[in-house]
Structure formats: structure tokens, C-alpha cells
Design a protein around this nucleic acid. Structure first.
Length: 588
RNA sequence: GCGAGUGUAGCACAAUGGAUAGUGUAGUGGCCUCCGAAGCCAUUGAUCUGGGUUCGACUCCCGGCACUCGCACCA
């Protein structure tokens, strides 16, 4: 068998061909359903025979036998094949096949090529809309998941061959600015502003908000400030710009720690002059109607949205996020030629997304535009250990910068305990990678649909399915190569490798070759936890191998094949962690 | 009230309609003259409930129950 990157896809294609070769009735209807198998049964299994045989009133085991007999010779040479149970076909890759694959797919570039080659994403333009904080406020724990999940998904899509446009749809327009400006004019603390301008803007907003709540006169004054801003008053506009600059600077500090860089930061204000077209087109199409003074879209065919309006212009004439989201959608189609848009937004905004997508669908159909694929990448809330949304003791949102600082601090403690021999500067650098990586990984390792409990001890105590466990495996592999004065992936070190032999070698090799399926599943479902799970299991296989079989042995062929396994494990772990947005280390 | 999400071991999680429901922690018992013990090996313990569909259901459908969230101008 030639060096297919993705064995499951290859077996699937070969089984389909076999169905035709064997002359199966209605062979086109046979779907092999090849997937990674429980290792007790082999490496891959085809489940499709059962359904096919049932539908065609055939004996499934007989069909399976026929298919196996009709399989092309290369596949039969590469695998041990068995029909089992009611009609499963099990494939176990032979040691030589494993070795051939590991030798052939040897570097990052090769993996990228393999992953993109037959990917349905290849060449597609994907806009990933994630993070999207509001200006004048610090990012807090509520902004964590969108940023972390969004970045991982963007990287997975790139790996799958898509052209990804990362767009940070910042909330930089809205009613809050009237209150901030009002408070800025009266209650600015210049010293605090010099120290941390964003913190001061945030304080001013809270002060302005509280004052407006308490006194209707203040509310009117704040609204006047907003009107002036919207009319282009130079002072207010300058202040608004300043808020934007300060905020973006602070956001970038967070993004730097998380390894995020956007291609665009087209905030809501960018769409100010683009919403009129939305109103006009939706009204002309008969989609938008006046209701209680607002411009809204109802969906009569929908049980709920025939009553629950999608408000695209407020009764005071101002735009809201429905207006700008529609304008944004159009802009992304026209300027980014989006084939798909992924909205990484928390699940509470499910109704908004549904209404947005429904409205866009009708709008685009009515104006002969091509609607891109629209995906709401929804996710649950970050909870504290009591099962309530995570807050500080005083009930405030936890600032992201504080959260990341605490992660690094806790990691630094641990590094000090475990690796006190390393220089302090390196311990700090390690703590940054381990601390931030632990937060990212804890978020990603869990199915994004559910809420998740944020528990420092589980996250950073470094046991189980955690970033530290994976980073530790990476560090140990680097250490092996360091001891031998070799570079990982050095072909000379792998030359003359003997055949894979021990149980631990084979178990590790069998795990390694399934990297493509793990990435593919995570990408297709836009769920990074599938990749996390794979990497964790891979690190587990490596640790078992490491305990069972010594790498640095005298016997040259044995040593070479074990170095090959180490190098590929390192490659998959580093590549996989990179796809999740984590950094890795050589020592920790 | 309508809708969405979530119910799996003490706790935290996994399982694309597939074979004996996997893991981690915590508990118990082993393993460092040997490449990093932040490790490895072994072991105890679970699908909210009642129906249905299917060769096969944690998964799909219908009805309950529990928790969380959303539902007219904040995003």
C-alpha cells in the first residue's frame, strides 16, 4: 500500500472499490463506515456491512467475506484483516506498514501537506469571528472561551487547507460611551489614568452608569454626550478614539499571551455607514417591518420567531448588534469572499444567531446573493467550583490578566518545587508556557457544548488530561535527544532502524498513525476536544513505552527504531499542541 | 408559558448508531543501582426516569423529572 496519510479514508475508498469489484448488488449504496477501532479489535473497523446487508436482505458475514476477498492486493498486504461479530471488518496494520508510515510522514511540512491534500476545506475562505470584547472594558473570564476555542478552530481550519480570515468583531460602539464621556468630563482620576488607562475608563463607565441610574438628569446628559459623539463632535470623537486605542492595546497584551493575532479588527463602528443598506434592502424585500417604533424581522413560518422579533433598528433610530451583524455578514461576503463564517459565541446567544442566519438566508435569496455556510460555534459558561458562573469573592468578573497571572504564578510555584535547579529566568519562561497552556488546554479538552468547572487544582496540579502532562512528555523526549546529542527527526539517528517489535513499541506506533483521523474529526466537527483526547492518549502510550523500553540502548537497530518513535511522538505532540494554540518546551 | 443546553462512578470528564460504556482524580496494592517518578503497572466503582425505533441506543424519536440559560430595543 502506498503511503496514504489517512488510513481510514484509504480503507473506505478501497472497500467501495471492492464492493464494485465483487459485483455486490447496488454497490453504490454501500457505505463502508470506516473508523478508528478499539485497539482490542484492530486499528480500524468497517461497520457499514451490517446496514447494507440488512437493507438488501443478505447475510452480513457472507458480504464481509466477499468484500475482503475482493480487496486490492496492496491493502491486503498492509493489514491483517478479519471479519468479526455480526459482520464487522477489522483491519490491523502490520508492523512493517506502521514503520513505513512513520518513516514516510516525517516532518511538520509533510503533515501539513497530508492533512490538506484531500481535505474538503482546501481553498475555502473561512472567516472566524471570535474573541470580540467590548472597548472601555477589560477582558474578563467570560471572554476566555471564545478566544481560546476560536484560535484553535482557526488553526485547525488552516491545517485542513482553508484560507482563514481571523476577524475580531470588537464592540466599540453603543450606548455605554455616553456614560463614559459624561463621567470622564467630571470624575477623571488623572493619576489612575496614567497608571492604567483602561482600568480608569472602566471605573468611569461604572461611575457614569451608576450616576445615570440614580439621577434621570444625568442619564439625559449622558445621552446628549452620545448624540454629540454620533454627530461627530470632535472632542467626543477624540475621546472615543482614545478609548479604542487604549482598549486594543490592552487586548493585544492578552492575545500575546494566548498566541493570538487577528487579521482584522473591524469593530461595530466600522459598520456605522453600512447599516442603512441593510434597512433598505430588508424593507424592500418585505422582510423588515415597523413594530412598536422599531424595525424588526419576524419569521412567520417559525413557531417562535413569528412572535419574537429580530430587532434590526431600535425605536430611537439607532443600530444594534443585529443591524451590524447583518452588515458585517454582507461585508464578509463581498470583501473576504467568505465560503463559510464561524461565529465563536457563547450558547446564550443561540437565538440571536438563529435569527441572524434565518434572516440572512431570506435576504440573500431575495437579492440573488450566495449565502456562505454559517456556523454558530457555541460553548457553555465557565463555572466556579460551586457550579455558579466564576466570579471573584466580591462578585466581580475575574479579569483575564489576573487569571493568567495567577496561572503563571501557580505554575511557577510548581516549577520551583520540581525543577529548582533551573535558572530563575527559565523557570519564569516555563511557568508562562505551563500556566497559560493549562488554562487553554482545560478549556479545549472538554466538549465545548457544556459548561465547565474552572478548578485550579485540577488544571495545574498536572495530573490526568492536562497540558502539563502533555508538555512533560514533550520535555522528556527532548531530554532523550539532548542526552544523546541528537536532534529530533535527524534521519541519521533513525537510519538502520530494526523492525518494530515490543508490545509497547507497537502500541505507540499504532497510536501515532491515527493522528490524521484525530485532526480530521476535530476539524470536521469544529470540536478541538477530539484532538486533545488523542494527544492525551498518545502521551499515555508514550509514557508506557518510556517506562517499558529503554531508548538509549547499545543495540543500534533497536535504538534507531526507538528514536524514530520518539521523534514522531514529539512531532505529533508538538504539531497537535500547536494546532490547539499552545506553546511547548524543551525543558520544564 | 415557549425554546435551547446539560444530566454517565464520591468529584471532574470521554464515547462519529457498533463489539465487554473509556479516562483522570480520590481509595487500595506494587514499581526508581536503569534515558526526567510532574511517571508506570494493577485494582474497586456509573449511563436521571418511562416508553419507542433498530441486527445493535449514552447516542435517534415521544413523554416525564432535575439543573442552567434565552425570550422587544445592552451586546
Amino acid at each position: 500500500m502506498d503511503l496514504s496519510f489517512n488510513f481510514a479514508a484509504r480503507l473506505d475508498a478501497d472497500l467501495q472499490a471492492a464492493a464494485h469489484a465483487a459485483g455486490l448488488a447496488d454497490a453504490g449504496a454501500f457505505v463502508p463506515e470506516v473508523r478508528v477501532a478499539d485497539s482490542r479489535h484492530g486499528d480500524f473497523q468497517a461497520n457499514g456491512v451490517l446496514g447494507y446487508a440488512k437493507a438488501h436482505r443478505l447475510n452480513p458475514r457472507a458480504v464481509a467475506d466477499q468484500l475482503v476477498a475482493a480487496l486490492a492486493a496492496p491493502v491486503r498486504d498492509a493489514c491483517d484483516i478479519a471479519v468479526a461479530g455480526p459482520g464487522f471488518i477489522n483491519f490491523t496494520l502490520r508492523p512493517a506498514t506502521l514503520q513505513q508510515w512513520l518513516t514516510g510522514w516525517a516532518g511538520r511540512a509533510a503533515l501539513e501537506q497530508g492533512a490538506a491534500e484531500n481535505s474538503p476545506l482546501r481553498g475555502q475562505h473561512w472567516v472566524v469571528d471570535y474573541s470580540s470584547p467590548n472597548t472601555a472594558k477589560q477582558m474578563h473570564v467570560g471572554h476566555l472561551r471564545s478566544a481560546v476555542i476560536g484560535e484553535a478552530i482557526a488553526r485547525l481550519l488552516v491545517f485542513g487547507g482553508a484560507r482563514v480570515i481571523r476577524d475580531n468583531h470588537i464592540g466599540d460602539w453603543g450606548t455605554q460611551f455616553g456614560k463614559i464621556i459624561w463621567a470622564y468630563r467630571r470624575h477623571l482620576d488623572a493619576a489612575a489614568f496614567a497608571r492604567d488607562p483602561l482600568e480608569e475608563f472602566e471605573r468611569l463607565y461604572k461611575a457614569g452608569h451608576a450616576a445615570a441610574e440614580a439621577d434621570p438628569a444625568v442619564l439625559r446628559e449622558a445621552q446628549q454626550e452620545l448624540v454629540k459623539l454620533q454627530a461627530g463632535d470632535p472632542d467626543n470623537l477624540a475621546l472615543w478614539k482614545k478609548i479604542g486605542e487604549v482598549s486594543r492595546g490592552a487586548f493585544q497584551q492578552i492575545y500575546d499571551r494566548l498566541g493570538i493575532r487577528f487579521d482584522h479588527e473591524l469593530g461595530e463602528s466600522f459598520y456605522n455607514d453600512k447599516v442603512a443598506q441593510v434597512y433598505a434592502e430588508l424593507t424592500a424585500a418585505g422582510l423588515a417591518v415597523e413594530s412598536q417604533g422599531a424595525l424588526v424581522v419576524f419569521h412567520p413560518e417559525h413557531p417562535r420567531y413569528r412572535e419574537q422579533p429580530f430587532i434590526i433598528r431600535k425605536s430611537d433610530g439607532a443600530a444594534n448588534y443585529a443591524s451590524t451583524d447583518l452588515a458585517t455578514l454582507l461585508y464578509r461576503c463581498e470583501h473576504f469572499h467568505a465560503d463559510a463564517i464561524a461565529y465563536v459565541i457563547d450558547s446564550r446567544q443561540g437565538d440571536h444567531c438563529e435569527q441572524l442566519f434565518l434572516t440572512a438566508q431570506k435576504w440573500f435569496a431575495g437579492t440573488n446573493r450566495r449565502l456562505p455556510r454559517l456556523e454558530h460555534i457555541s460553548f457553555g459558561t465557565v463555572l466556579g467550583e460551586g457550579g455558579r458562573p466564576l466570579k471573584t469573592k466580591s462578585g466581580e468578573n475575574i479579569k483575564l490578566k489576573d487569571l493568567l497571572a495567577e496561572a503563571e504564578e501557580r505554575a511557577f510555584q510548581l516549577v520551583g518545587e520540581r525543577s529548582s535547579d533551573l535558572p530563575e529566568a527559565e523557570r519564569h519562561a516555563i511557568a508562562a508556557v505551563v500556566g497559560v497552556g493549562s488554562v487553554q488546554y482545560a478549556d479545549l479538552a472538554q466538549n465545548r457544548s457544556s459548561d465547565y468547572v474552572f478548578a485550579w487544582d485540577k488544571m495545574i496540579s498536572l495530573e490526568g488530561n492536562t497540558a502539563a502532562y502533555l508538555l512533560y512528555a514533550v520535555a522528556r523526549i527532548h531530554s532523550i535527544f539532548r542526552k544523546l546529542s541528537l536532534e529530533p527527526g535527524d534521519r541519521a539517528a533513525e537510519a538502520g532502524a530494526g523492525g518494530l517489535d515490543t508490545a509497547a513499541e507497537l502500541a505507540l506506533a499504532r497510536k501515532l498513525v491515527k493522528f490524521p483521523e484525530a485532526v480530521q474529526t476535530a476539524t470536521a466537527q469544529l470540536r478541538p476536544h477530539f484532538l486533545c483526547l488523542y494527544l492525551y492518549e498518545l502521551a499515555g502510550e508514550f509514557s508506557a513505552f518510556y517506562a517499558a523500553d529503554k531508548v538509549a540502548v547499545e543495540d543500534a537497530p533497536v535504538r534507531a527504531r526507538r528514536l524514530l518513535l520518539c521523534a514522531r511522538t514529539l512531532l505529533m505532540l508538538e504539531t497537535g499542541l500547536g494546532l490547539l494554540g499552545l506553546r511547548t518546551l524543551q525543558r520544564m
